[in-house]
Design a protein around this nucleic acid. Structure first.
Lengths: 187, 187
DNA sequence: AGTAGTTTTTATCATTTGGTAAAAAATTGC
DNA sequence: GCAATTTTTTACCAAATGATAAAAACTACT
């Protein structure tokens, strides 16, 4: 809880009243490895702040899995389109480890946004940051080949690298596990 | 101007006062084919609403061009990261045709956001939509091969297809022009 | 230690895409 | 209409990645 408070203050401070209202409505939930936080077709009703653990957000097409994003400790994420429009999700989210999550519900956030200008600012910043990160990822995928993308991931995600298996990393990079294994062997 | 008003009302209506304040500070600018709206290294100081014409947002790496997005009539766009953080842009933006643009300055939007809750909402929605679109594009790039991405582009952008040359389309798809030509020949 | 299950690596061949070069077609300016 | 320029296509070979299969390495459980 302290971590989430810290995160909020760092990211976009809310006033006392909004902060209290937000914290009154937080829920904490535990997931075992393999548990679903969200399934394709369900509406994503929460922002997820990871206190501890690791998640992946993914979908499957033609028996191949594609990972959109890993959920990492002390970061806030959601399935954006589903959350924002409250329509069925195109992504599954599951826990890759025993995971503890602080949940912020859509209805609560929505209420808060309408009531407090600062909450709206908070969410605007969150969406902006998401858009920025996505843009970078698109550039990366287009301009770098798989080897370079792998190296970049290693450089920027050293903290979680040991906790992600090769198959999942390959799914994130958009290549087969065999290709990734080959890439690593070449070094 | 009427188009932009219509766009705003559709997208996220502002109250009378905010709307008037916004419209007082709009500027309209004309660009010739090949003119730069923004160069890499400059700070993106505007939201761009395209009244007429077509633009591309791109960067170059190893002599290869990569297009992030095409700017299309009656759509609002910007170089997100640069605009939001007011730091130097990693992208160029140029006009592909004679283009008329309604400009909304950062400082004005910022003022408006601080003053009017509704403007903040407007911008939150804009950022959310951007993030959503980016997520879709990432999924697309990862899951579809070049042929399928080309087919998808044709289906969804028929309106501007004739106005984009093959080289630019290839740059958007992330492949060489020769590959794209080959893909089209196969059909 | 041994078995079963999972993860990673290796191998082989097919397919896709890239790099380079050049020809063909279309567009522009005079 | 013709020359110059730009855009698109074709061709050939190289490199990257995919598909499939199987072996090897690692993990968990008893």
């Amino acid at each position: 809880m302290a971590d989430f408070l810290h995160f909020c203050n760092q990211f976009s401070p809310l006033n006392q009243e909004a902060m209290e209202e937000l914290f009154e409505n937080l829920k904490i939930k535990h997931f075992q490895k393999g548990d679903y936080l969200l399934k394709i077709g369900e509406v994503c009703k929460h922002l997820y702040f990871i206190n501890e653990g690791l998640t992946k957000t993914f979908f499957i097409k033609d028996d191949k899995e594609f990972i959109n994003v890993f959920g990492i400790e002390n970061r806030l994420f959601t399935v954006f389109e589903s959350y924002v429009t409250q329509t069925p999700s195109n992504f599954n989210v599951i826990a890759l480890e025993p995971t503890t999550i602080t949940l912020i519900s859509y209805s609560e956030m929505d209420k808060l946004c309408k009531k407090h200008h600062g909450a709206e600012t908070f969410f605007r910043k969150l969406a902006s940051l998401a858009a920025t990160k996505m843009t970078r990822r698109i550039s990366e995928i287009l301009e770098e080949n798989a080897t370079e993308r792998y190296n970049l991931f290693v450089k920027e995600n050293n903290q979680i690298l040991q906790r992600i298996n090769l198959g999942d990393l390959a799914s994130y990079l958009g290549i087969t596990q065999q290709s990734l294994s080959r890439i690593r062997a070449k070094k």
